[in-house]
Simulated scan of single mutants.
Amino acid sequence: MVYGLVFTRTGHGLVVVDSAEIRIWRLHGIRRPTPGPQLLASGNARDVRITHDGRTLAAACDDGVVRLWDLTDPRRPGAVRELPAEHRKLVSVSLGEDGSRVAAGSSEGAAVIWTRRSDGTYRRADTERFQSSVAEAALTPDGRRIAIALSTGAMWLCGLDRRAVCTRRYAADHVGNLAAGLGYSADGRYLAEAGSRGTLRLRDPASGEVLLSLPNPRPLQSLTWASDRPTLYTGSADGGTAHRWSLPLPILLGHTDTISDLALHDRRSLAASAAHDHTVRLWSIHDPHHPVPRGLLRHPTAVTALALHPSGTRLVRGHRRRQRPPLGHHRQTPPPGHRQAPRRIHHLRRLRP
């Protein structure tokens, strides 16, 4: 069984983690690959990752050790470094962009974080423990935050200080099914989650809020981001199907309820969206295929309508006004088919040029 695949920095080699060993295979165009250096003569590795620059390879092993190799020259890999986790059955591993931080998840209910010292050695900085098995753990490219997915479907986020210690742990939106894959995009703008029931979710990287759910007809097994562009690849658990998703999508992400109105200002390349989640979101649409968030306006009730002033510097928003009935008054239910006109209160907001 193959547990992981990663290309070397030049693309001339492929690291294969299977049930027998970890080995670099030499690629020769369309010709059959030939075996290269063997990194580990054991089949206990369960996950493998490589840094953005291709210099550091990490493997999470079932014996509770993360193993690192220097692949600056894939033809002559550096000696293995071993990072004991004090928890067996490691199932996932993640690296910061430069390899200075390493994280691993264990099915024994722990996520372990290491940080690199100035002399190049690593020390175990923190261990986060949970009541359930850890299915996936992912570091942001800058190594300042970690996302941890549990076998129950719950997800936790931790902010890491300069010592790589979790200073605040908080729960993200719980959607109810196991994350079979988890990873931050190379620019850190998205946290992607491959749901075991077939849904690909994009989350806010800081809060974990679900921004967008993309259905997939088959259960998902894995995901990976391209290192040089916002492109996501997913693999299904049955049927051997893989999909490619190009991001960012030309979709205004972030609302959590019905979007009631939209307003555009072509000259200022500005868009505004109103929703029943009590918010108005502002967007820069200089490139319509890559909308950029510009601001968030909150309101105590659902926003039902909006308009942008011709100058593009003011916004009017309307909502259904809630009125308290007089003391002792019993509110009557309107007859079927009756539609009550919304009572709109207009608020002016001056926008930054």
Rank of each mutant, 00 (worst) to 15 (best):
L296S: 06
L296H: 06
L296M: 03
L296T: 08
L297D: 01
L297R: 09
R298I: 01
R298C: 09
H299M: 04
H299R: 07
H299W: 02
H299G: 05
P300A: 07
T301W: 08
T301K: 01
T301Y: 11
T301I: 00
T301C: 02
T301R: 07
T301V: 10
T301Q: 05
A302K: 07
A302T: 06
A302E: 12
A302L: 06
V303K: 01
T304D: 10
T304A: 12
T304Q: 13
A305D: 10
A305P: 00
L306K: 04
L306N: 06
L306C: 09
L306R: 02
A307K: 05
A307G: 02
A307M: 00
A307Y: 01
A307L: 00
L308F: 01
L308V: 02
L308Y: 02
L308P: 00
H309G: 00
H309K: 03
P310D: 10
P310Y: 01
P310E: 08
P310K: 05
P310W: 07
P310H: 01
G312Y: 05
T313I: 08
T313A: 13
T313P: 00
T313N: 13
R314W: 09
R314T: 08
R314H: 15
R314E: 12
L315M: 02
L315T: 03
V316Y: 07
R317L: 15
R317G: 03
R317F: 04
R317Y: 11
R317Q: 11
G318F: 07
H319I: 02
H319L: 03
H319C: 03
H319W: 11
R320G: 07
R321C: 01
R321P: 01
R321M: 12
Q323S: 15
R324C: 04
R324N: 10
R324W: 12
R324F: 08
P325W: 05
P325T: 12
P325M: 11
P326L: 10
L327R: 14
L327M: 08
G328Q: 07
H329C: 07
H329L: 06
H330L: 14
H330D: 11
H330G: 01
H330I: 12
R331T: 14
R331V: 15
Q332V: 15
T333R: 15
T333H: 12
P334N: 09
P334V: 02
P334D: 04
P334S: 06
P335L: 13
P335F: 07
P336W: 06
P336M: 04
G337Y: 07
G337K: 09
G337A: 03
G337Q: 04
G337W: 13
H338C: 05
H338S: 10
H338Q: 11
H338D: 04
H338M: 04
R339T: 15
R339Y: 12
Q340M: 07
Q340V: 14
Q340H: 14
A341F: 09
A341I: 07
A341W: 09
P342A: 14
P342H: 12
P342T: 12
P342D: 15
P342E: 13
R343Q: 14
R343N: 08
R343D: 12
R343H: 09
R343E: 14
R344T: 15
R344D: 13
R344Y: 13
R344L: 15
R344Q: 13
I345W: 06
I345P: 00
H346S: 09
H346E: 12
H347W: 11
H347G: 08
H347P: 00
H347E: 13
H347Y: 10
